[in-house]
């Protein structure tokens, strides 16, 4: 394998960058030193152009292969998606000198220049993707031990608040039956039979757990206010809620203040609430890392598709007059 997983991240990134730079610059250095440039219209130049186009079409085929991931062809190795991806990476770097030499390390007219710019941007985005793939997964494991599915973070976090009454309800229209409210109810509601549904101070309704509340009076109001005003919005919307709980320091301080105002028997429940806030902070971080890890793919794909289209226009027009 080109890159060993036993290597450090820095070493793997360095190898990728060095190999890419070498692929791009060594032919230039050789041609400049020998003053023997390949003209785009020469036999060699056209051959390189055709070879580059063939490689680019293969690279684009990875998208199709992934679309039909379940397809099993023969021989299996040839249709193995991981093998395709590996070849995609290797040929993606190999096509760089092919196209640069074909273009005589220049840009030419508007369409050839546009093709070349898109090509270089595609290669750059691909290399960027390769680099972040070496680095961020480990970063994710280290910083988000309790990770979840990144695309479902809002939904998972909001599930601690409650359930949506109907599928098309908005995320913040939940029924307040989640773990948070069950904990609050268990701490603060009183004067009801166990199992009785009571209106919650912060709105909504909860099921009473005991007849005598553990937390009563002003502390109970403060607890409800804390959860409804800070914790629930933070779980539902994360950093965009503006909640101070997004800061680990602020969260620790506020939960500490909350504990001081509550009896020790309630601290376990408060600890759980703090853990939920911690989850959300980790998942926010996970979303950010996940963004860096995957956002380049649409860019890479869009650039590739645009480049392939413009390349076809360039090739047809060039062949017409060449």
């Amino acid at each position: 394998m080109l890159l060993s997983k036993n290597w450090s991240v820095g070493r793997r990134v360095a190898v990728i960058l060095v190999v890419t730079a070498a692929a791009g610059l060594i032919p230039y250095a050789v041609m400049r030193a020998t003053d023997s440039w390949v003209l785009p219209s020469s036999r060699t130049g056209v051959l390189l152009g055709l070879l580059g186009a063939a490689i680019i079409f293969f690279e684009m085929a990875l998208y199709v292969r992934k679309k039909f991931r379940r397809f099993k062809g023969w021989p299996p190795l040839l249709w193995n998606v991981r093998v395709w991806l590996w070849v995609h990476v290797v040929l993606g770097i190999a096509v760089l000198p092919v196209i640069l030499v074909h273009g005589k390390y220049g840009f030419g007219g508007f369409v050839p220049a546009l093709t070349m710019v898109l090509f270089l941007a595609t290669i750059a985005s691909g290399v960027w993707g390769l680099v972040v793939q070496q680095w961020l997964p480990q970063e994710l494991i280290d910083t988000v031990p309790d990770e979840t599915v990144a695309s479902q973070v809002n939904r998972v976090a909001a599930a601690y608040v409650g359930r949506k009454p109907v599928v098309w309800s908005k995320e913040h229209d939940r029924d307040r039956t989640g773990e948070i409210f069950r904990l609050l109810e268990s701490l603060t509601l009183e004067g009801a039979e166990p199992g009785e549904v009571l209106p919650a101070p912060g709105g909504g309704a909860v099921v009473a757990a005991r007849s005598e509340a553990l937390v009563r009076g002003k502390p109970a109001e403060e607890l409800w206010k804390f959860c409804e005003g800070l914790l629930v919005p933070y779980l539902e919307r994360g950093r965009s809620s503006g909640s101070p709980l997004a800061s680990e320091y602020d969260a620790r301080r506020r939960f500490m203040q909350l504990r001081e105002s509550l009896p020790a028997e309630a601290w376990d429940a408060i600890g759980r609430l703090e853990q939920l806030a911690q989850y959300r902070r980790e998942w926010d971080a996970q979303q950010r890392v996940n963004g860096w890890l995957h956002a380049w793919v649409p860019v890479h794909l869009g650039l590739s598709a645009a480049m392939t289209g413009v390349m076809l226009v360039h090739a047809v027009r060039a062949m017409k007059y060449w």
Binding site: Y63, P298, V299, G302, L303, A305, A306, G309
Partner: peptide, 9 residues
């Protein structure tokens, strides 16, 4: 992105 690229081309 694919759709945009296709439309642009």
């Amino acid at each position: 992105a694919l759709l945009s690229a296709g439309v642009l081309v």
